[in-house]
């Protein structure tokens, strides 16, 4: 394949991964690294370098719509970014000292654990009591979110908007530190860990979790990107092609989130996580 065809193919595939990444709150990197390494045979470290840039680009493309439509919780995002950015710095610094096979194995294991966690907690938790949380109260993290959008038959759309309370912020911060470390280590947004942390531990609605994860991913990715850029692990043209595809895909994905049923979103998320984790584990352990 000529470099031009390769760049065009990478950009096209990244449109799809950016769309899925934005829709699922993963940030796209979860798919970009496996695609670049498994399908295009690129070096793992260079794939991660390109991925961190695409993660930031995808977040910047998708998040404005999520903020405008009230899906993303800005206060929760910035609060949790303290933990994710700390973790990302540690992870990015550590990545320079780990072997490629170790990176594959860690990547696959992290995704598999996230998928299992989501699978174990699939039931709707509406109506369950949410424990009080002094940190969430002090920072006014509680909010309102759109649970579903339904057509009325007259062409108009009705939104089911409900208030939600945030809980277990300390647990969320702990989980986000780990998510940030994985993000820096593997060049992914770590939405696969952030979404379950917000959805399962902090009890945010799934759509608020994915939208807030998308917003956070940009800042976490920026912390990692600085380290990768300083270290010279970024091929500009590769990163550029990946970023452009991701931006286009993320914009498409952000439009789909409002109309996508929450359960369908969770099901897609699970299937994708399982497939990618198996592929990466096979590569790492082979």
């Amino acid at each position: 394949m000529s470099p031009l065809a390769e760049i065009a193919a990478i950009t096209a595939v990244c449109v799809l991964s950016g769309c899925l990444g934005s829709l699922l709150g993963l940030g796209g990197g979860t798919f970009v690294v496996p695609i670049l390494t498994l399908a295009f045979g690129l070096d793992m470290r260079l794939a991660i370098g390109a991925s961190v840039i695409s993660v930031v680009a995808g977040s910047a493309a998708a998040s404005p719509r999520y903020l405008d439509e009230g899906f993303a919780n800005l206060r929760v995002a910035v609060t949790l970014e303290v933990a994710t950015v700390s973790g990302a710095i540690a992870g990015a610094l550590l990545a320079g000292h780990l072997s490629t096979r170790a990176l594959y194995t860690v990547f696959g294991a992290v995704l598999a654990v996230s998928a299992v966690q989501m699978l174990r907690h699939r039931q709707d938790r509406d109506g369950l009591a949410v424990p009080d949380d002094p940190i969430a109260d002090a920072l006014s993290l509680h909010g309102t979110g759109t649970r579903a959008s339904t057509g009325t038959g007259t062409g108009t759309t009705v939104r089911d908007i409900r208030p939600y309370r945030v809980t277990r912020t300390a647990t969320g911060l702990t989980m986000m530190t780990a998510a940030g470390a994985i993000s820096g280590l593997l060049g992914i947004g770590s939405g696969a860990m952030k979404v379950p942390a917000m959805d399962l531990a902090m009890r945010l609605p799934i759509k608020v979790s994915t939208a807030t994860s998308n917003l956070m991913i940009g800042v976490t990715g920026a912390a990692s990107a600085v380290v990768y850029l300083q270290r010279g692990d970024v091929v500009p043209l590769l990163a550029g092609a990946v970023a452009l595809g991701t931006v286009v895909g993320a914009r498409i994905g952000s439009r789909l989130l409002a109309v996508m049923p929450a359960e369908a979103l969770r099901a897609i998320f699970l299937v994708v996580l399982l497939i990618v984790s198996v592929q990466m584990l096979l590569r790492g352990l082979a």
């Binding site: 404005p64 903020l67 993303a72 908007i161 452009l244």
Partner: peptide, 30 residues
């Protein structure tokens, strides 16, 4: 309910400008 919270519009604007400028530079470089 459903409306953007305080600061959300400003952040969205910053992200749109930065994202657009960055993507334009990448496209120009390519």
């Amino acid at each position: 309910p459903g409306a953007p919270e305080a600061g959300a519009r400003q952040v969205a604007l910053v992200l749109r400008i930065g994202g657009g400028l960055g993507a334009a530079l990448v496209l120009a470089g390519l």
